[in-house]
């Protein structure tokens, strides 16, 4: 086997082929709630699998309550080039006048979401970046 190309030596690994579906998405799947109840951005994320792909449904905060952004396919990322453990995902919501690019990673059980809001209209609004934290809902401690 020839040596794979790399741009940083941590990528110089030998591994059996790791396909997208080989990466454990369990840590990513679930209903995620923003830790900040005052958020003005994404309040809730629903991450699930369908059609063998990771899917992401986001709910933003709107003037009349939560706004369903719809569902988009998310690309899964592992913890390393030879890892099968899902560590995060990336996805984009395109609203026409703007797009929200999302990069999420799991840290200590939290989902840390980096949001890149890019305006494509002529409103002259500045692109902006947000980073928020989400907890996965569960019923382990309910009585």
């Amino acid at each position: 086997m020839s040596k794979p190309q790399f741009a940083q030596i941590c990528d110089l690994v030998e591994t059996e082929r790791i396909r997208d579906r080989d990466i454990d998405r369990g840590p990513l799947v679930g209903n995620w709630i923003n830790s900040n109840p005052e958020t003005e951005s994404i309040a809730r994320l629903n991450v699930f699998e369908a059609d063998a792909k990771l899917q992401l449904q986001a709910f933003g905060v709107g003037p009349q309550g939560l706004s369903d952004w719809g569902t988009t396919v998310a690309a899964v990322f592992a913890a390393g080039p030879a890892s099968r453990m899902g560590a995060g995902f990336a996805a984009t919501f395109d609203f026409g006048f703007a797009e929200a690019r999302l990069q999420a990673m799991i840290m200590k059980g939290l989902l840390v979401l980096a949001e890149f809001h890019l305006f494509k209209d002529d409103s002259k609004r500045a692109h902006y970046f947000l980073r928020e934290y989400y907890a996965k809902t569960h019923d382990l401690f309910s009585q």
């Binding site: 990322f77 913890a79 080039p81 099968r84 990069q103």
Partner: peptide
């Protein structure tokens, strides 16, 4: 966030 385009079999990772 690294995505591999080659045929090396490496996992995309962050």
């Amino acid at each position: 966030f690294v995505t591999f385009w080659d045929d090396s079999g490496r996992a995309n990772y962050l």
